[in-house]
Nucleic acid binder design. Sequence first.
DNA 1: GATAGTGTTTTAAAATTAATGAAAGCCGTT
DNA 2: AACGGCTTTCATTAATTTTAAAACACTATC
Lengths: 215, 215
Amino acid sequence: MTILIADDEPQMLKVLSAYFKNEGFDVRTAKDGQEALDIVESTKIELAILDWMMPKIDGIDVCNYIKENSQTKVLILTARSQNQDELVALNTGADDYIRKPFDPQILIVRAKKLMNSSKEIKVSDIRIMENEKKAYKNDELVQLTKTEYDLLLVFSRNKGVILSRETLIDRVWGMDYDGDPRTVDTHIRRLRAKIGTELIKTYRGVGYCLEVKGD
Amino acid sequence: MTILIADDEPQMLKVLSAYFKNEGFDVRTAKDGQEALDIVESTKIELAILDWMMPKIDGIDVCNYIKENSQTKVLILTARSQNQDELVALNTGADDYIRKPFDPQILIVRAKKLMNSSKEIKVSDIRIMENEKKAYKNDELVQLTKTEYDLLLVFSRNKGVILSRETLIDRVWGMDYDGDPRTVDTHIRRLRAKIGTELIKTYRGVGYCLEVKGD
DNA sequence: GATAGTGTTTTAAAATTAATGAAAGCCGTT
DNA sequence: AACGGCTTTCATTAATTTTAAAACACTATC
């Protein structure tokens, strides 16, 4: 579980880093917007905690970029106190917004909520343990390859939503993948063979969907 | 999309109700915790906005009950200003926490975020979930092909507007399509068979229209 | 109430899309 | 370098969807 903290005050970086490391997170830090972008580009970040006012590129622009290009959650942290600012941030796609000064405990609880960390997702007789990176069918471990697991995770985070091959490729392989979209079919087939054929439904011409009855 | 607002100040209820109704939500109100629980028990609530301090049962206890028994999201709204209070609320399972006084706009944006901000369009007993790329009739999934879904989407975005075959072809097939305009008829026919024949009305010599009564 | 014009239904062929099976390529490990 | 598991690609097959044409039905108008 890797998080990014970007702030131009070294003291703030140091304190927050310590707090989050203490909670078991892998922490990357950046002292300006450019550094933040570089890290986001090269590392899979679960959550980005961004100060609004930073040198080079401000937090909102970083947020904008992140939201257009990834699934990474964003929490804006700022000394700005205008309601208008909070609205701008939230409408830019920020998932949460906290004003300075703040209680670090609150930041941590809110950050954890965004990552819904150590969560388990259940879909009919399948259970996905995100912290263990394992999936179970009727409490028995299903031996999934990395791609199969990633695929299942994307599906389970979007229960009932039809996902196109392009979307799946973006989320599982990454935006820069330029292979055959039909490759998805093959992985779907093998995933189905392991978790049961009914769960993932084909929508011809549209995509695939993890179906869920009782929700 | 039904939400519950619980607060013991009638003025607050009135103002918030108006705001959320204006945003298109179906709003239920409660003036104390007991009423809130009764509503949660009997209605499918998407989001509960709860004041902390309420007569009979306080907001935190209501939140506790909700989180143990349903998937409903909870936003706590309160005049309490201690950081400790926020921590208690978030740890009880509250999904967000806003202190009074607050900007109603911020409340609305945050509330929408909690509700998946899923775009849905409703026309009589048909619901189109744009994020899922699915359509429901009386809460049951309608199996539409890609073209049928696209067609329905164009109609639903133009409720009450008569659309000519040419317009439909442009919007559904794209400007560069050069097939027979009569093909539209066939798709309309099959769409009608699935969602009900009354919804799409024919205007001879003009086009088709998704009729809507109460609009 | 006949007729021309327009929408609807039926049908079947054509086109598109997904599932399958198999082979080749890739990568880390031995 | 050879092995084995995993991933990717590709050709074939199977299935569904789309299209278009023809037959049918309705409506308005004379």
